[in-house]
Amino acid sequence: MKVTIEENEETGKFTIKVKTEDGEEKTIEIPKENLEEILAKLPPNVEII
C-alpha cells in the first residue's frame, strides 16, 4: 500500500491519496490538526510518499 500526502497551503488541509496492492485508489482531505492521528493509525507495511 502506498500513501501520498500533499499539503494544500490555501485551505490548510492535507490531501491523502491511498493506492492499495490491488490498484484501488482513494483520496481524502483532512485538517492539518488530524494528520498525526491519521498517521498513527496506518499499518506498518505502508509506504509513505
Rank of each mutant, 00 (worst) to 15 (best):
E47R: 02
K2T: 14
K2Y: 10
G12D: 05
K19M: 14
N8Q: 05
A40F: 04
D22H: 08
I49R: 00
E25C: 09
D22I: 04
E47M: 12
K17L: 08
F14Q: 00
D22G: 07
I38S: 04
I5G: 01
T15S: 06
E9W: 10
E24P: 04
E36C: 13
I49M: 08
E10G: 06
I48M: 05
K2P: 02
G23P: 00
I5E: 03
I38H: 06
E33I: 05
K41V: 09
K17V: 13
E24G: 10
T15A: 05
T27W: 14
K13H: 12
I30H: 02
I30Y: 05
A40P: 02
N34W: 15
E9N: 13
E33R: 05
E21G: 07
E29R: 04
I49L: 09
K2D: 04
T11K: 06
E9K: 15
G23L: 03
P44R: 01
I5S: 02
E29H: 10
T15W: 08
P43Y: 12
N45Y: 12
V18S: 01
N34H: 14
E7K: 13
V3A: 01
L42S: 00
I30K: 00
N34T: 08
I16H: 00
E47K: 05
P43Q: 01
E33P: 03
N45R: 06
N45M: 09
I5L: 05
L35R: 02
I28N: 02
M1G: 07
E6G: 02
I38F: 15
E6W: 14
P31Q: 12
P44Q: 12
I38A: 09
T4M: 05
V46H: 04
M1R: 00
K26G: 04
I48L: 09
E6V: 13
T20Q: 09
L35N: 00
K32F: 09
T11H: 05
K13D: 10
K32C: 08
L42N: 01
I16K: 00
K19I: 15
L39D: 00
K2V: 14
P31T: 14
E24A: 07
K41R: 11
I28M: 12
E36D: 11
K19Y: 15
K19D: 06
G12E: 04
I48C: 08
P43F: 14
T27A: 03
T4R: 01
E33V: 09
E29A: 04
I28W: 14
K32N: 04
E33A: 11
I30T: 04
K41T: 12
K17Y: 12
K26F: 15
E10I: 13
N45S: 07
K26V: 13
L39M: 06
E6C: 13
K41D: 09
E37Y: 08
E10D: 13
D22C: 10
P31R: 10
K2F: 13
V46Y: 11
E6P: 00
N45T: 09
M1A: 08
E29W: 09
E47D: 08
L39V: 03
K17F: 13
T4V: 08
I5M: 04
I48K: 02
E29V: 15
I49G: 04
F14H: 03
I30R: 00
E25A: 02
I28R: 01
E47A: 07
P43T: 05
P31M: 12
K26H: 13
N34Y: 14
D22W: 09
N45V: 04
V18Q: 01
G23C: 05
K41M: 13
E33G: 08
I38G: 00
K2E: 06
E21T: 06
I16L: 08
T11P: 05
T4G: 02
E10S: 12
L42H: 00
T4S: 09
E6N: 06
V3L: 07
V46F: 10
N8L: 04
E6L: 09
E9F: 13
I28T: 06
I5P: 00
N45A: 06
K32P: 12
I49W: 06
E21C: 12
P43R: 05
I48R: 01
D22A: 07
I38E: 13
K32T: 06
V3P: 02
E6Y: 15
I38V: 12
V3N: 01
A40S: 11
E47I: 14
